[in-house]
């Protein structure tokens, strides 16, 4: 399949799920989809288009949070980034880890540093932060404040 065919295919197949397609450059496409349809779209891209899952990245923006799932189709050298926007009151999305294992660790990480809940993920334990890290403090959120009273931030000179 060529690049155009892939994009047309996506547009046709997921007419109702896709909100916007932003064709940035020959190698990059950003597709915004509705959060509920992430599992269908992602599994189609992974299984049928034979893409490799690169990673996911979460961002805390002013009015919503955003997760980008990056998939690379190596045969045509096209990177598709699926964008989902989550309302801050309801930070929940379906997990992709039942479809492919590769997403399980990155979901753990996003859960830990941004506090987004992944429905259906088997193992959402802490990955990076220490065990005594306080509940409900997420370091990569915009409103993160220093919580530890004992920190030293000067160089002692």
């Amino acid at each position: 399949m060529t690049r155009e065919e892939v994009l047309d295919d996506l547009r046709k197949k997921f007419k109702d799920d896709i909100i916007e397609v932003f064709d940035k450059s020959p190698k990059r496409v950003y597709v915004e989809i509705r959060p509920d349809s992430i599992v269908q779209v992602a599994s189609y891209i992974f299984k049928d288009l034979k893409a490799r899952f690169n990673t996911a990245s979460g961002v805390d923006l002013r009015y919503h949070m955003e997760i980008l799932y990056h998939f690379l189709i190596e045969d045509i050298n096209l990177l598709i980034s699926l964008r989902v926007k989550l309302q801050k009151q309801k930070l929940e999305i379906d997990s992709l880890s039942p479809i492919f294992e590769g997403s399980s660790w990155i979901e753990r990480e996003i859960h830990e540093i941004l506090g987004i809940n992944f429905r259906g993920h088997k193992d959402l334990r802490k990955l990076l932060l220490p065990d005594d890290w306080p509940e409900g403090v997420y370091p990569l959120r915009r409103d993160y404040k220093e919580w530890d009273k004992n920190v030293i931030r000067d160089r002692g000179v």
Binding site: T55, S57, V59, L61, E101, I106
Partner: peptide, 24 residues
């Protein structure tokens, strides 16, 4: 992955090292 808002600092910078995918 780098997101910029036009200032001289990134808004978000995501780093994914290869071992992160290979360890599991």
């Amino acid at each position: 992955y780098v997101k910029s808002d036009g200032t001289n600092r990134p808004v978000r910078h995501k780093v994914r090292a290869p071992t992160f995918m290979n360890l599991p």
